[in-house]
Design a protein around this nucleic acid. Structure first.
Lengths: 144, 144
DNA sequence: TTGCACTTTAGAATTATTCTAAATCTTGAC
DNA sequence: GTCAAGATTTAGAATAATTCTAAAGTGCAA
């Protein structure tokens, strides 16, 4: 069962990376595994630290390369929330992010199924969007 | 007329800054003027360069301080779009940002008046949101 | 008019990201 | 199979973005 789902994942990665002319490498697999196994929107640096545990020779630049590869082929999203490091998210379903301005934690939130159409200027071509909500998470809201 | 609106602006800045216990200083005024006079969502570095023209002794750290002060008191918004420098926007009306993934230009876009309610987890307190649309601007779309 | 809190300044320090050049791996043509 | 071409990884240097620090300046209130 485990092996089977693992095989499926591998196939999925190979397929998606293929659409951008990229290969599935052990490093890309590893970086993807890091993202999937703890969905706390880690920074590249955090991904590096976690990936290093399983693959001690992996380098900094490779982690950035891998993250870029995953983003380019639609396997992960970059999440830009505040000044400082960019974060990454392997959840490719349509969703928004809630950012607690106190503790900094990030939560995925569902977006309404029917989203209103945003009018973009004539000639512009939109192909995606990000929604971020700012506020306090339950923990931090309680403490105020 | 010019003087009058200038006076109004000053009053407005003093007032808004006051709500956060901050003062209106020549530097903060200058940084705000930079944001307002060319609404191209400049980075802190760009603000620094522009502010320096009118106020050659202004320092890097001060620009960051001033931008933070403006953001804290609701006179400007930080816009986080991609890896790299944070950008700033003095348009405090409800709006979204269109980011051209080709030329990198950023445009303000109107959001529909009636926005759907996003369900946040129990106990969470939301107090703002950002919407960013990715795609190609008219110029770049034409070239493809 | 003195003191205190707030600000600014220059420059150092830190953090985040990208670049570089050499080594390694993969793949397809032969 | 073997080799060249291209893709990928690596360590570490370089660059970019941001924050910190300590000293000096400013202005208001007692």
């Amino acid at each position: 069962m485990k092996a089977r789902s693992h095989h499926h994942e591998e196939q999925h990665l190979t397929e998606r990376l293929g659409t951008t002319g990229l290969r599935l490498t052990p490093q890309r697999q590893q970086v993807y595994d890091v993202l999937v196994s703890k969905r706390d929107h880690p920074t590249a640096e955090e991904v590096f630290i976690r990936a290093k545990k399983a693959m001690p020779e992996i380098s900094h630049a490779t982690v950035y390369n891998c993250l870029d590869a995953l983003v380019k082929s639609g396997l992960a999203r970059q999440v830009q929330l505040e000044r400082g490091a960019t974060r990454f998210c392997p959840n490719m379903h349509e969703h928004g992010h809630f950012h607690c301005s106190d503790c900094g934690m990030i939560y995925d939130v569902d977006l309404p199924h029917e989203l209103p159409c945003v009018a973009v200027p004539r000639g512009f071509r939109a192909d995606g969007f990000d929604v971020t909500i700012h506020g306090l998470c339950a923990e931090c809201a309680k403490q105020k």
